[in-house]
Design a protein around this nucleic acid. Structure first.
Lengths: 336, 336
DNA sequence: AGTTACTCTGCTCGAATGAGCAGCCATTTC
DNA sequence: GAAATGGCTGCTCATTCGAGCAGAGTAACT
């Protein structure tokens, strides 16, 4: 006689009930049977109302991160490039390099806080971003901290590599292994001479033991690498001809991430790309979309296997970087 | 200070992974086992990450209604007052009476669209809010529409009861039973005379058959009842002394919802409170918080058992109205 | 009016899930 | 040093959930 009156359409009554049920279920985390019993409905009806409500967009589930991380981009990058960790920091592109560096540094600091244990050996290259990272460091396991290359004697280099290593060592309480010497030296002889120095030798000897490295990835272009400025025009042209697209710790590499041998190499005091390659966890830091080719190459060549970058660079990487991992098993697009 | 490696705190890596998992689980609706298999984790770990994420507020579940309904208040009112249906329309208190009426009308219209079937008999009292309801009516079952009281001959009464009944009848296609007469008449003799008129008699005779009534609840105060103005000062003082707090269709009732007999009654052409009481579903419309005592009384007395109101009135009702044993929240007649 | 098609409802069964528990690893404390 | 402590991990079992199914009442169509 009487039809199902309360189930005609999705009118106000239905909405109110659906909202009530959704609240009980999602917010209060109660079970459907419980709700059904309470409201005098069958659990199936409750389930169906819940389904309808979700389909109608009545229930909105949002994933918000406390930190300014873009989770989708991060995951996409991680999968696409086959990275161990990927953290994309949401940063408006028009923001200054300085603020971007600081934001990246905060995130990288948290990342290594999370990652590094006492059993690790932390290695740091020289860069303003790495300096920002150590500045932002709040906690760190008491692990040895090794400087991976000499310091950059730039003008605004108030925070050089030595300071970074010191800072990390202070925060964590581990031993510091600094390198009191410039990264790029006048000639090979000076490099050899300094490499023989006792403290530096001790540090360099630890390079193979480094388990976690934090490195800045520079593009081999003006303004996108702190090293670019320090080598002469001769070195730049030589490197350009050899196909250099980026550098890590003044070690140049080409579009495939392979080392580019130039005369610069002999003048550099620091970790080599081969040594870098052997480090299990190398966290690359970079932030300008123009560095995409360099970062892409570094990832390709296995020089870095984790990445902290800004949104612009992350998006560019996702667009341009070649897939580095086989497609995942279940691409369940049309099946559901 | 050594902690478990990949699970120390809720750092960036954890956040990214948690966000990924939360997305897969909540947004894409995949199962935990599936996610666990894909990411190479145990399903327990996935569940724990999900729990932590929820506790951290990383996952935000919001219940949004398409219509401006306050679901919490509605549910609370429904339960508290033992109402069949309660719909609280979110409306800023400073909004004009007119816009509030229209909003209430829209919602009430949807409500009766949802509720009324061809087997019902719809009854309407006279009020601007009821007029707004029928104006907003889009669909309606082809049921008879009965005018429950005469029209109010106020100045701005462009939409009287007759028009409401016509409109509802037009939309639904059911038969209309209007009353072409004023609601409050000069004397009892006139009432008797009009009640004898053929068309009116036919309408009045249908009152006991009405199954769904839409009525406006007025407070027995100046400006809060359209009837207040139409009865003389004598009637007002008489009613006040008798304890009237509200009216429905010019029928006064006291704080307990009991009928208040005054000389006005004899001059009114329309449904009595006893008749109203017998109607299974009476939807009360009201919108000003100053009407709270009247609405509360009407609910207490069982004169209305569903309610459409605005936020201010709803909140006031929840604060002041005494708890009332919920009869049977929800379905009527649909007992399985 | 008869009949067909459909929607709504509640049930069954297998999969998914949550709570509690034991083992393990690492640190802390005596 | 060695035991105590605490957190993390994965397992078991009872509960809960979801997909599909059958019956009933309704709407539509002939």
């Amino acid at each position: 006689m009487v039809r199902g009156r309360d189930s005609e359409a999705h009118g106000p009554t239905w909405q109110v009930q659906a909202a009530l049920i959704a609240r009980r279920f999602y917010l209060e985390g109660r079970s459907k049977v419980e709700i059904a019993d309470e409201l005098g409905l069958s659990r199936f009806k409750v389930a169906r109302i819940l389904d309808d409500a979700r389909e109608l967009g009545l229930v909105e589930v949002r994933v918000n991160l406390p930190a300014p991380i873009d989770p989708d981009l991060s995951s996409a990058l991680q999968e696409r490039l086959g990275l161990r960790h990927a953290v994309v920091v949401q940063q408006p592109p028009q923001d200054s390099s300085r603020s971007t560096r600081e934001e990246l540094g905060r995130m990288a600091a948290e990342l290594i806080s999370e990652l590094v244990t006492v059993d690790d050996v932390l290695g740091l290259t020289c860069s303003r971003t790495v300096a920002a990272t150590t500045q932002a460091l709040q906690t760190l396991a008491a692990c040895p901290v090794v400087q991976l290359c000499g310091t950059l004697a730039g003008p605004d280099m108030e925070a050089g590599s030595v300071e970074s290593v010191r800072r990390a060592s202070d925060v964590g309480g581990g031993q510091a292994f600094p390198i009191y010497a410039p990264m790029v030296l006048p000639d090979a002889a000076t490099v050899r001479a300094l490499a023989g120095e006792s403290a530096i030798k001790q540090t360099v000897r630890l390079f193979p033991d480094v388990t976690v490295a934090v490195v800045a990835v520079g593009a081999w272009r003006s303004e996108l690498s702190t090293v670019w400025e320090t080598v002469g025009a001769l070195g730049r042209s030589q490197a350009g001809k050899a196909g250099a697209v980026g550098e890590i710790g003044a070690r140049l590499f080409d579009a495939h991430g392979k080392a580019v041998r130039t005369s610069i190499d002999d003048r550099v005091l620091g970790v080599t790309l081969d040594q870098l390659h052997a480090i299990p966890e190398v966290i690359g830091l970079a932030y300008d979309e123009r560095r995409a080719p360099a970062v892409s190459a570094a990832v390709q060549g296995g020089l870095v296997n984790s990445l902290v970058c800004d949104t612009a660079l992350g998006e560019r990487l996702l667009e341009t970087a070649p897939e580095r991992r086989p497609g995942r098993p279940g691409d369940r697009g049309a099946t559901a």
